[in-house]
Each structure stands twice: as C-alpha cells, then as structure tokens.
C-alpha cells in the first residue's frame, strides 16, 4: 500500500450532495451578479444602498472560493508540495476574510462620517441612462432591495440543508451569509423609507448597521480561517463543537487485540482530518502488517479521516 500518493475520495452518497452544492453555488453566483447590477443601477446617492451593494459584492467571495476549492483541492501532490493542495483554498479564504473585515471597517467609517457631517441624502426622481422616470428613486431602491433578498434567502436555505451532511465549512458560512442577507435589506429599506419621511440620518444609520454586519462577517471568517490554518481538532461545522473524534479513535483502537496502548492526535486539514496514531503493540508479530491493519480500522471510523500516520512506539507519554 502506498500512502504517499493516496487521494481523498468522498463516499458515494456525499458525492451526489456535493454536486448539488456546486450547482447551488453556481446559481448563487449568477443571482448575485444580477443583484449587484440591479442594486448598482438603483443605488443613487444613498449611503445605505451603497453599503448594501458592497455587501452584495462581498457575498460573492464565499461561493467563488468554494468553487475554486472544489476545483483545486484534490489536485495530486507534487514533488514540491508533497502534502497536496488541500489547504490552498484556506489561504485564499483568509485573504478574502481580511479584505471583508477591512472593507467593513471602512464602510463603518464612511457611514459615521456621513452622520457627523450631517450629510442629507438627495433622493429625487429615478434617473437611468439619461431618462428620468416619474417615480421617487426611493421606491426603486426598495424594489431592488426586495429583489436582492429573495434568491439568496431561498438558495441559502437549500445550502444550509446540504451543509451539515457535507461538513463543508465554506458552504456553511456562505449559506449563513445568504440567510442573513434579508436583515441587510430590511435595514437599508428602513433607511430609505426614513429619508422619505424626512429623517435624513436614517440613511447613514442604516449604512452603519449594515457595515456592522459586514464587520461581523469579516470577523467570523477571519476566525474560521485562522482555526483552519492552525489545524484545529475536528469540529462540527454547524455547532462549532469539537467532535471528540480523537477520543473515539483511541477507544476503538484500544479495544483491538494487538494494541496495548494508543494515543491519537488529529487536526483539520481543509475539509479532511489527518493526524498521528501512536500505538504500543502488544505482540511482536509482523509490525508492518499490524500497523496497516490498525490504519485501515482507524480510517474506516469517519469518512473524513485521511492520511493517518500510524506510528508504533515502545511507550506513550501522555
């Protein structure tokens, strides 16, 4: 058995779900692009609309990084990168998360500045491509906001249903961001209606609220990317609780006849778990064969265990 070039394969039934998730993400990108266009055309001089628009553009990042990850993370290892490329998407996600955070802070600054300078947003007739329409631009903005809510909320729900089964973190984060999108739209809508009622500050306040949501997204994603890159112990994507998989593995392997003592250390590596199993073997048989057997048993315990190293030792220091 050669371990060096082993490639990770999803179980069959998960493969199906993953294909569905990929289709949903493509749909998400398509709708987000139409949304950013509609929002841009309706934006006018409203700070809240501008902020909501930036958030819509930013929400393109998770689906894109998910699809890029799907494309590249299973590339076979090379001489130069013998551990494969499973962590490459994590790196790009970290960069994107920092960008979201910084942009969120900037949007908050922008909204705060508009508030301090008492910027009164001018929302007049809707004007597009050189034509004025006999309708208040605020109504058009609200219509655009309503459109911006519907596809992400529906797609977000569908993705949320898939995410726990697949344990795909990017998918989960993306679905959650989509789901929270309606709050942004409500905030922006209230800001615009507020302006309509003569409260000039409503626009900037709404923008500030939305920027806080962007900052929250940024912080969540930076945290997530950090724990991914540090190789945290296997964790459930939904609850964020540790799975206790290492303990389960020790228990399972400790019950084996040939194992006297066992110590397990696992880490997340992208979407799979790897790590080391240290064993004290009880009999002095064919060590290599025993180790391979232990390894097979261990890997069978969870579908995401991959590239486990089983290391025979004389004693364990715990």
């Amino acid at each position: 058995m050669t371990v060096l070039a082993e490639r990770y394969k999803l179980p069959e039934e998960k493969q199906d779900k993953l294909q569905r998730a990929i289709r949903l993400e493509w749909l998400t990108i398509f709708f987000l692009i139409t949304i950013t266009i509609v929002m841009y055309l309706a934006m006018g001089s409203s700070q809240a609309m501008k902020t909501a628009w930036v958030e819509d553009v930013l929400s393109l990042i998770p689906p894109i990084s998910f699809l890029v990850a799907m494309r590249y993370r299973n590339n076979p290892p090379t001489d130069r990168f013998p551990y494969g490329f499973r962590r490459a998407p994590l790196l790009s996600f970290m960069v994107a998360a920092v960008a979201i955070l910084v942009l969120g802070l900037y949007l908050l600054y922008d909204a705060g500045k508009a508030l301090l300078e008492q910027h009164h947003p001018t929302l007049a007739h809707f004007h597009l491509f050189g034509n004025s329409w006999d309708i208040w631009s605020g109504w058009v903005m609200i219509a655009a906001l309503i459109y911006s809510v519907i596809p992400p909320v529906i797609l977000g729900r569908m993705k949320l249903r898939l995410a726990p089964g697949l344990q795909e973190k990017t998918l989960f984060a993306d679905a959650n961001m989509n789901k929270a999108d309606w709050m942004t739209a409500v905030a922006a809508g209230l800001g615009i209606v507020g302006v309509g009622f003569g409260f000039w500050w409503a626009d900037s306040v709404a923008a500030a609220v939305i920027s806080l949501d962007v900052i929250k997204d940024g912080v969540t994603n930076v945290k997530r990317a950090t724990s991914d890159l540090l190789g945290q112990s296997p964790t459930d994507v939904k609850s964020g609780k540790q799975l206790g998989l290492a303990d389960k593995l020790s228990e399972e392997l400790g019950a084996l006849q040939e194992v006297q003592d066992v110590g397990v250390r696992l880490r997340e590596e992208g979407h799979v778990f790897s790590g080391e199993v240290f064993v004290v073997l009880s009999s002095s048989g064919d060590t290599a064969r025993q180790v391979e057997h232990i390894r097979e048993r261990a890997t069978a315990l969870d579908w995401r265990l991959h590239n486990l190293t089983v290391m025979p030792v004389t004693t364990l220091e715990k």
Partner: peptide, 24 residues
C-alpha cells in the same frame, strides 16, 4: 421582515407629500 417592509411603504404612499423635506 416582509411585513416590516410593506408597512412603511403603504404608510408612505398614503401620505400627501412623500418624500418629505428634512428642513421643510
């Protein structure tokens, strides 16, 4: 959320002058 959206919209269209001037 949907109701929240519609309520001010309906109120707004019911008003005589909408949008209003913050400084009148």
């Amino acid at each position: 959320a949907a109701v929240f959206f519609m309520l001010p919209v309906l109120l707004g269209t019911g008003c005589e002058r909408f949008p209003r001037d913050p400084q009148h």
